[in-house]
Design a protein around this nucleic acid. Structure first.
Lengths: 197, 197
DNA sequence: CTTATTTTAGTACAGTCGTACAAAAAAACA
DNA sequence: TGTTTTTTTGTACGACTGTACTAAAATAAG
């Protein structure tokens, strides 16, 4: 892949993100995206096989950036309690610093569907996103720091934590001047208390 | 409004719900909805001013049914702790018994936009949905049963509870055989612990 | 039964969509 | 430099959208 190819693809994906963040997934047409990038629609077709391939890049790019931001911060912690705190804190910070992108990911993941109408990214969600949280919970339980979790109840806990983070994103779009620090502190408190023995 | 008018509108709204639940908001065209109802597109135009008015009915209908289901159950409780438990329990039961409708509401509320691209139902969400939870929290704090909440931290708590319920809905669509009872029990535990002193 | 009203089906239309494609422009290479 | 390859533009096309509208059908009223 040439330099120009990479740069163009990056630019187009960036404009797709901005477009989705602004007008929503349903209204984000190739025409809209091209206009924002100040290029012809044909350029998008030239660099991407189709619209689907373009929109796929948004979650893919995001997951990579997300992982390389979150993972080392968690690994730097010793106790599961601290891991959970850092997981929440670093997620909210990451969201705060990548507002448009994260919002575009949520829009894409919850809207993009395959030809038969099923949600495209529904399956990936579990293993990629939920597993790390479940691992922290299991670890904390084994060390006797967290309360007892069955496999299903750890899953509910993980889902609830994840929903809280995604919900924060949507709230942040609605209220851009939200006090992120305060929100973070409160979420840490909530899930600290709810995992305690 | 005549009898036929009411029946037709109800039928069309019902088919709109089913269509959205099945193929998603973006793909739910009037043609699709009409086909499902086995009527001509023209009938929809006759009974509804436009597509927007039709899709509005989905959240409106839902909020009314939701309120008349939830409110009396909460009012029947004495302590805030019980109120919170019943709020969670009755919400999950309501979702479980109205899967398609609730999912269609989430799709509609998080996708329907005004002409200028802004989310249509973003504003309503707060007052209608969040306030009852905030009231329970405030009550519990005043009675000394719950821990201290500032106004913003009570709001985060309310949002987190609400996100947990909405997230449960989406999980239920992904995994229709989910153990609802177990999920409910775990959510009650989580928020019981996290509101305790 | 006749007439008026409500409701339905079917079609037409203007607009937007994603994609395909030909020609022009730019860049890379010799 | 001239030649080839890569990239961009602009347009055209078929498919699909929501809405408008006409004529037919069904129902209600007199």
């Amino acid at each position: 892949m040439s330099f120009i190819e990479k740069a163009r693809r990056a630019q187009i994906v960036e404009c797709a993100i901005e477009t989705i963040a602004e007008v929503g997934y349903a209204q984000a047409s190739l025409g809209q995206i091209a206009k924002r990038a100040k290029i012809s629609k044909g350029v998008i077709s030239y660099h991407f096989a189709n619209k689907e391939e373009l929109l796929e890049q948004i979650p893919i790019e995001y997951y990579m950036a997300w992982q390389s931001y979150i993972a080392p911060r968690i690994e730097a912690q010793k106790s599961p309690k601290e891991m959970l705190r850092v997981y929440i804190e670093s997620n909210l910070t990451f969201v705060d610093e990548n507002r448009k992108h994260v919002f575009a990911v949520i829009e894409t993941v919850s809207n993009q569907r395959t030809a038969d109408g099923k949600l495209r990214f529904a399956a990936d969600h579990d293993e990629t996103i939920l597993l790390p949280i479940e691992n922290i919970l299991t670890l904390g339980m084994q060390e006797g720091i967290f309360r007892e979790f069955t496999r299903p109840s750890a899953r509910v806990m993980a889902l609830t934590i994840r929903n809280a983070i995604d919900g924060f994103t949507i709230e942040l779009m609605r209220k851009p001047h939200l006090d992120v620090q305060e929100y973070t502190r409160e979420l840490v408190t909530i899930f600290d208390k709810s995992t305690k023995k």
